[in-house]
Nucleic acid binder design. Sequence first.
DNA 1: GCTGTTTGGATTGTTGACAATATATGCCTT
DNA 2: AAGGCATATATTGTCAACAATCCAAACAGC
Lengths: 226, 226
Amino acid sequence: MSEAVLQTYTRADEAFDCLQTAIIKGDLVPGEKIGEVELCSRFNLTRGPLREALGRLESRGLLIRRPHAGVKVVSVSAEELMELYRIREVMEGLAAKQAAERMTDQEIADLKATLDSHETMIEQAQGQAYYQAEGDYDFHHRIATGSRNAKLAQMLLGDLYYMVRMYRYRLSQSSGRPHRALGEHRRIAEAIASRDGELAEFLMKRHINAARENIETKIKTGTIGV
Amino acid sequence: MSEAVLQTYTRADEAFDCLQTAIIKGDLVPGEKIGEVELCSRFNLTRGPLREALGRLESRGLLIRRPHAGVKVVSVSAEELMELYRIREVMEGLAAKQAAERMTDQEIADLKATLDSHETMIEQAQGQAYYQAEGDYDFHHRIATGSRNAKLAQMLLGDLYYMVRMYRYRLSQSSGRPHRALGEHRRIAEAIASRDGELAEFLMKRHINAARENIETKIKTGTIGV
DNA sequence: GCTGTTTGGATTGTTGACAATATATGCCTT
DNA sequence: AAGGCATATATTGTCAACAATCCAAACAGC
């Protein structure tokens, strides 16, 4: 949670984080119109920083704001979630390719260590969806930053992942295929370790596509609903 | 410029547009620290809407804002421009693929008409870089929206294109290969018209990659500088 | 009884003033 | 004379009040 060098943490940042997590966790239900003053009293903020945070959130597409008509959290649909995964597929494929070319040996070692701890977490806390999700997020996070592509990492970490996590909370944990996902993660890490960019890209794209299909079938079979 | 249904246009939006175009056009030089009050007097704004706009711009990565230390426009590098094109390659490839699957016949006809007018523009105004750039932007814009992928279109049109256009203005027009680009555009349009998604994706990726290489060689040979 | 208008209330957008913080200058110490 | 520290200024972050706008309910007209 706490970053290394934490410059003066302004109220607007606080508001931004609060609202973002609230949206992701579903505390702010989508579609419902919500007033600024209520948000202020709910998060102990004033309207100045709040409005700045709202502007940022709107720019990131997490909420819609019509002038003089209030804000509302974006309503979600299964199709849009699928579209998000299609974007992730190509972007994370690129990230994996560039990571294979540019990651340092140390970063690769850390990546593998992450997978080890992830494995023990899965064994110990079976079905503890939260840790699985966090481990999955950590893996993809490392590859995104390892791509050495600032804009790519920004778009993945700053936009897409928050969106996906929002859906995830709403679906009360999606994947539920920890072992298979872990195996796929390992193979991606191996491809990166052997500096095989094309293979890493291919495996990553297939990995995300599999996750997408997994969710799609669950939605279609009615296992989970949106 | 003027959109069809223009909801009440708030000052913050105005500030956002002003600053964005100023950044893209280079009126705000990168790296230079600039104060809020100066920005206000320069664009006839007050600090409230200005700050909101600054938040949005920062969220989009066009400027960096350190608390109590002012804002500065992102400084650009040739490598970052190359990274942008790599992102464009995969994302627009996806857009082309989905556009081939989802565009209406009317949209495809419009796309082809766009290319026709683009051709006449190139013939009439040889070397008029501005129109070439606009035509190119129009083509890619149509495909992005035609993908029926809201988030993809938002990321392309809302983030990447502004970045690329910023660099473009700074390089005082890049491509300079209108005929070849037009031919590539036509082949992409044909692939979309024949509903061949994979081909459209392949051609689009190659098209953007070629543009990237074109700029890269120009930078390396010193034809243009950043 | 229904539609169109009008008025009232509430909410958002905006403004200006106040407080907190970082940078820069000058002084003191070594 | 050079470096570090303290102060001072200027700039940003924050706050509370004002003005503009939209939504809803009530009333009049058909």
